[in-house]
Simulated scan of single mutants.
Amino acid sequence: MFFEPDDPDIRERMHAAFAGATIRLDCAPSHGATETWGHSGRTIGAPVTTSSENAWLRVLEAPVGKEGGKLWTGTQEAAATLPREIPRPRLLASADWVNEGYAYRAELSTYVTAPVCSPTPDLTQHIALPDAWWSRLQRATSTVAATPVPDNRPRVISQDYVHRTIPRYLGEAGVDTTVHHWTLAHGDLHWANLTSPELTILDWEGFGPAPHGFDAAHLYAYTLPVPELAARIRDTFADVLATREGRLAELTVAAILLQAADRDPIHARLAPQVRAHAQWLLKHHRDS
């Protein structure tokens, strides 16, 4: 989703860390593999091979003393918390080390062969997905929401953030922005984190408690450019989206994406549809 960092020092440091991770976790880079980068070059990932299988290796970096936190610990905590029936990569091994003022974490996971549904978080054209795919996605998100929250796992967003962001980006609409029901969520459910035709849900590092219905609301917002599939999401997740809790989750997601529109072109192109949907939600709230 992100480009290779412009800073040559970051590229050199992360490539060296990735090479070191292959030694620590006894794997080798796959020939001709394409690497992927996280925001500002803070992570790098690529396919590798082990003695028994193909795998995916991801390396995170942070200045010493600033490692830790939700995204740093998320993959390991998700592996320890979530039921095995949720379709996701399995964490095989990990390693931590420090070098020249930077802390590193390497995570080796099972390799997912199915392609992602979209190269970007939003869906820009129709894709054909079987009924079984939709059923499995609905079961997976319901299972996540029903899973007890791990002790001390940070929230995807804070209550204070909801209170501040909805009025700032949607206006003072007379909506009670207090979240009364927090449940476990993936936290970043969009089309670049879903594969097809075999469903796998990728990138669990940001999981945590969120307003109930957050994952369904998040995916719906990123599907607005394709009305037919957006309607399918509303039908599939009607049990949460058609509730007051689900409506607050949708307003929260709308505010998040409108805030992101100030920073990147993907969310900027999505913003008009998100804003229009938010206004529909607010009108529905006033009329109900």
Rank of each mutant, 00 (worst) to 15 (best):
A249Q: 09
G101F: 15
L108G: 03
S158D: 10
V48Y: 00
R232Q: 11
R232A: 09
F214A: 10
D6S: 07
I256E: 11
A210P: 00
H218E: 10
L189R: 03
A242S: 06
T252I: 14
A271I: 05
P47D: 08
G213P: 01
F2N: 08
Y102R: 12
V240T: 11
A255R: 07
T223I: 04
S196D: 04
G20A: 07
A145D: 03
V156D: 01
H31A: 14
I256R: 14
H218G: 09
I157H: 01
I266N: 05
P83C: 13
T73Y: 07
E35D: 08
I256K: 12
L194D: 10
T178R: 14
T73P: 03
V64S: 15
V253A: 03
R153Y: 02
L25Y: 03
L92P: 01
V112W: 02
T252Q: 09
T50Y: 06
M14I: 08
A128G: 12
R42F: 13
A230E: 08
P83H: 13
E172T: 15
K66S: 15
P225Y: 00
M14P: 02
E85Q: 08
I166F: 15
S118V: 03
V98H: 10
P83F: 06
Y161F: 14
H186T: 10
F2L: 09
W72Y: 14
H181F: 12
G32C: 07
E12Y: 14
